[in-house]
Design a protein around this nucleic acid. Structure first.
Lengths: 348, 348
DNA sequence: GTGAAAGCGCTAACAA
DNA sequence: TTGTTAGCGCTTTCAC
């Protein structure tokens, strides 16, 4: 490895001057600077970030912890973060927790040793506890919140998105609307559930516990929950299903197919989070779409600006709007007409 | 941050002893070790990896560069790598190049500054050039190869997989088989194209250039290519399509739908790389499936063992078998019968 | 505007 | 078995 010292010798200056020429060019006379940059180029010098970070006691790196890279939603989040980080010359340490608090804890510990400047995290259900261990670097939570105090959050309007979806079903004439809700120790699930209740309440439809089933956000959970919901006696069985995340929606749709139930004639379905699969499956799925990439990008930008400017400048929490996309998987209970293919923003 | 020195004071030993107690426990008397570990625990000590790496002139980190995190294939690869790395206590620096050689170059440079122990890369078309800049750390190429000498590779049997797919179409009676091939400066595309030719050759079917269209691996490229292929005059138009990667397959299928052509009655389609979308779309897609997760995991293990043991021990290149999965998107040209739903391994 | 020197937190000779 | 010491490559006072 070619070091600062090599460049210094080559340019006939001290290491201090080389360091300045590279990091604070204005502190060095133009001629010297030129000579140094030239030397650096010739030698193919690349600063050793470890040494630099050690000395400065802080590195130009960020930690990114997500829960499921195989979920396109999270992959998109990661890309948004990555792009924003790269734009500002930050490098990201990447971890995947599989929704497992232990893995999250380990990731946090490992990360600690690398002195990242900040942390972006999709918190696991035990994140609040895990995050206590971490020294007080700036943290931004994405997609959901652990409730840890002093942490910024960037999320979508889950309750609003869910409410719009359920209202749509109600407008179509549905009264028995089931929900596959997700784990209630995760904020998104709680909020979407909340939106579901609000919509029912607003329409004067009583909330029925037996129509609401939890799941662990995986495809198989969605399948099981749908199977359970749809095997209720005919009179009790929901005529529409609102599913709280994308993976579970896949499972639910597969379950419906297994049972030979027709969508939307016999059952309407709305999913949360759009995906290629949702858009191209048959019938195309009506969904609450999220600005996923923006979520990641914005979260990272929020973090980075909180680093440069004084912390106070920025909002502590951001909510992005969802978009409701009506496609073909929803229709009146009798199956009389199809969806209209329109889109609408939840708020303006 | 609590440092080694803090622990040393607390345990009444020198920093050297603390360092040993942590990194080479057997070099320290049991009693002392206990005392030190206890102190470390009490103080919540976490080693500063930057200092450690600087001193050892090598860090317990790996670089991972992939070309498209939004492609589930690559996301799965990343997860495999990640899991293997974590198992061995390595941390990964993650980069996404979007297939852009410039981004790759930057990623490589940034990485250099962090002194990773090794590099895992899905090489861009210009990787061979870019990799020259990098000091000689161990490198493993995943999925495809740049042809850089001295680099290990972990790939699937692309030619074999493609050949099996095309043979299947030939057996069904197809003679005009189109291929959407991908960029020919990427090894996977070349190899799959090779397999396609071999299958035709073996069956005595002449290779026709106008039936083979390149694409840039994106959905839209697949769509355009399919549109072009299917707008050939009736007599020239292929009765079957073999598409060289998953994203382009999506585009091709969408194009076919746009044109109102029925699959498999009027056109058979085989894709390369399985996905949830392929499995659940209608009709379910016949594909050459890849052991994607294993590819990533194995690539990382290969890299890591080459680090610990002497380099010589391991094979320089690994090929994994693909699996051919017949589903519903292929049938005889006339559309007389459906696929059989069987699976078969390409080799045994 | 530039250089000398100290030191970030750790590990690895070398001594004791 | 443990301590002393030097130094990884860089940045940053403090002099000049």
């Amino acid at each position: 490895m070619v070091s600062l010292e090599d460049v210094a010798k080559h340019a006939q200056v001290s290491t201090a001057t080389v360091s300045r020429a590279l990091s604070r060019p204005e502190m060095v006379a133009e001629a010297t600077r030129e000579r140094i940059l030239q030397a650096a180029r010739e030698l193919g010098y690349q600063p050793n970030q470890l040494a630099r970070s050690l000395r400065q006691r802080s590195s130009r790196t960020l930690g990114l912890i997500i829960t499921d890279i195989l979920n396109p939603f999270h992959a998109t989040l990661a890309k948004g973060v990555q792009d924003a980080a790269e734009k500002r010359d930050y490098t990201v340490f990447f971890f995947n927790t599989d929704e497992d608090p232990e893995k999250e804890k380990r990731a946090l510990n490992v990360l600690r040793g690398h002195l990242p400047r900040g942390l972006l995290i999709v918190p696991s259900p035990k994140a609040r506890e895990n995050l206590k261990q971490v020294p007080k670097i700036p943290i931004v939570e994405l997609d959901r919140t652990s409730g840890t105090p002093g942490v910024r959050t960037v999320m979508v309007d889950n309750a609003g998105g869910a409410k719009t979806a359920v209202q749509h079903l109600i407008e179509l004439g549905h009264r028995r609307i089931g929900m596959i809700v997700g784990r209630l120790d995760i904020s998104t699930a709680v909020e979407r559930h909340q939106g579901y209740r609000e919509a029912l309440l607003a329409a004067g439809i009583p909330y029925r516990e037996e129509l609401v089933l939890p799941g662990n956000h995986r495809e198989e959970d969605g399948r099981q929950a749908a199977l359970a919901l749809l095997s209720l006696p005919k009179e009790e069985r929901p005529t529409a299903l609102f599913v709280g995340n994308n993976e579970m929606t896949v499972g639910a749709v597969l379950a419906v197919r297994e049972l030979g139930i027709r969508i939307p004639e016999e059952l309407s379905i709305v999913g949360f989070d759009d995906s290629r699969w949702a858009a191209t499956m048959h019938p195309a799925l009506t969904v609450v779409a999220q600005p996923t990439y923006e979520l990641g990008f914005l979260a990272c930008e929020t973090l980075l600006s909180s680093l440069s400017r004084g912390q106070a400048a920025l909002p502590t929490s951001i909510r992005l709007d969802t978009t409701f996309i009506v496609r073909e998987s929803t229709a009146p209970p009798g199956g009389l007409s199809k969806g209209l293919g329109k889109q609408r923003r939840n708020r303006h």
